[in-house]
Amino acid sequence: MRIKMIVPVIVATFVLVAGFTSLPAEAAPPAQVRIDQLSKDFEPVLFDHANHIEMVGDCGECHHHTTGTAAKDPDCMRCHNSGSSGERVACRDCHAAEPFSADHLKTTTEDRKRYHRDLLGLKAAYHRSCMGCHEAGGGPTGCLDCHLRTESGDALFRAGKHTPTPTEKAAGHH
């Protein structure tokens, strides 16, 4: 399968920046997720959720315990042992798009009573969730396998037509 789909047709798009915070537990899972947090430097990624459901089968592989299956990690089991589905399912419901904003820090690391203080941001949650499986299961792992860079992204990475020519040497001496 290819994740790199630039089909502009969006069937059931979850726009990450959209305002709603949770999804009814019984609602049907989205077939496709549009990931466009980094739209300045990268084209949006259209994540084929339906395909992944088919391939992986077990929602708990990616969604912790929140989809009704019991938690797999014995550490999680200590609390999350009921196997009942959670109210919050989508990654962004817990993993903030801006994990280090002053507001968000108040609810995570600064909240000393909270157990899950050390929470990944949304971008890292995606990457760290995807990459493990992709490495193990032969999925795409290179940055550009999923993300197309925009003009701005090419400029950022000095890639594409912004690639330095060999003569354009930096003066630095090590």
Partner: peptide, 30 residues
């Protein structure tokens, strides 16, 4: 009140930005 550019761009969240004393707690927790 914003994190540095490197922290923000990191796809893996190698870097966690926060108050130093809380980061020490988090690190030991990890």
């Amino acid at each position: 009140g914003q994190p540095p550019a490197c922290v923000e761009i990191c796809p893996q969240q190698v870097m966690t930005f926060g108050h130093r004393k809380e980061l020490i707690e988090i690190a030991h927790e990890r």
